[in-house]
Nucleic acid binder design. Structure first.
Lengths: 144, 144, 144, 144
DNA sequence: GTGGTCTAGACCACA
DNA sequence: GTGGTCTAGACCACA
């Protein structure tokens, strides 16, 4: 119990150092990214409990709803799981979710690179968007 | 102009054989692609005159607006030029325009491949479109 | 101008009838669903402007943040587009987004049916979830 | 029991040929599948005795825990029965258990198909897992 | 006690 | 003026 308390206290303290309210980056995003890094580094592992919304809010001197928003997005990304009454834990598939997010970030960089090259070659934004929309429409067809 | 009449009659006949109204491919696209192929093969060369919109429409038994659309897109792509009174001609930079179009087609294939991989990794179409829009906005900012 | 005003006034009035704060369904969800229905029925069409967050909030006697949340989710689903200063409009690809959402709903029903049959045949929830996780892992591999 | 010894020796030898430690398939799974096939083909019939964990482990040169895990899963599937002192036998309902396992495999294929279609239509893995979890929770409620 | 929803209103960047 | 973020706190369902 003491050990766990120490670990959680350490996490709270570390999180406090990750948040800069004047950086211009929305705070809920900073919280989300800090927790993502904690899972990446293994500080938080699948099954580990996260601080409660209120505990983290009071530690970081933020409104609870700001933490709630960060937690909600992490949940949507499959990194954590929240249940009323039971608290919030790192999800069993957190590693896979991270791997997916990282591969997506890599793909997004490739996407941006190609878009820049298309625009540089004179293609209009409208044409590019039309091509993207066409691929999306094709997906719908596959899914039927 | 008169000496081109024979060639033009041959072109009209050849174009007629390139259009299949039942193929499902939009007819303006077929016209555009057929004329592009004619330039690729050297049947049409920089400076050559194209049939007027009305002549081509009546020959292919299509609505003039269909031809207008095909010509407009080819003009936008830099393959042909229209000037009031002077008719439509293959533009002097047609070869470079073709090369650019081909490189664009290659880039578009890369684009489609990346999009498919992004969707396969679970990214939502709305998120992808948001990323594309973001790059476009960024371009606007650079241009300012 | 008057016609547009009428249309928007009509939409506001209709939306008011779609929200029941005592139904147990979160209000932001009710707003989201009502607007989705409006697009489904063609009351709202691509390019149409939606009421401003504040106008809709005051009409429905809700806090602005409740509307903001509904708009944010609709935006995430690709149905609408919001830009600070420019207001919120139905997105050009709204129809495709709807089609995708509908086909997803159909697939989710199939999914629930199969899950029930698997459980009825004696498979444990843990085994089912393991199978789902395995498919997801496979996706990551494809995306690389 | 003695009269089964010949048969059992044959079984042990046949099992040895079914296991390939370099195939990448977990060995406990290979053992489980090999024994399942033996029941499918009638080599093992309801009431027949299986080798003891230690006998099979030493014959196949595997760790006893590997065999234990294979036996445990077969038991969970209703294919075999273990009783302290009496050893392990093919259960009387083995045939029905097999039929159920086969129908489960069919359902799992349907499950995988639907999951792929959901991901292809842009649904995120986290959303899919949330839906699965929701069905499981619903089952719990029904059972109460 | 826990997370989720909602309020009423402040403040910000963008236009 | 517009949407996006954030606050401080109330209320709810679930456990």
């Amino acid at each position: 119990m003491l050990q766990e308390n120490n670990g959680e206290a350490g996490l709270l303290h570390w999180l406090g150092g990750q948040i800069d309210p004047h950086s211009g980056v929305p705070i809920y995003l900073q919280v989300r990214q800090a927790l993502t890094r904690a899972v990446q580094r293994g500080t938080l592992r699948p099954g580990d409990g996260l601080p409660t919304v209120r505990a983290l809010a009071s530690e970081l001197r933020l409104a609870p709803s700001t933490i709630t928003r960060a937690y909600a997005e992490l949940q949507r990304g499959g990194l954590i799981e929240s249940r009323a009454g039971a608290g919030t834990t790192v999800s069993p598939q957190a590693k896979q979710s991270l791997a997916r997010a990282e591969s997506q970030e890599g793909l997004l960089e490739e996407l941006r690179d190609i878009l820049h090259r298309l625009f540089a070659s004179g293609m209009s934004p409208a044409d590019v968007q039309a091509n993207v929309a066409q691929v999306i429409q094709g997906l719908g067809r596959e899914a039927r």
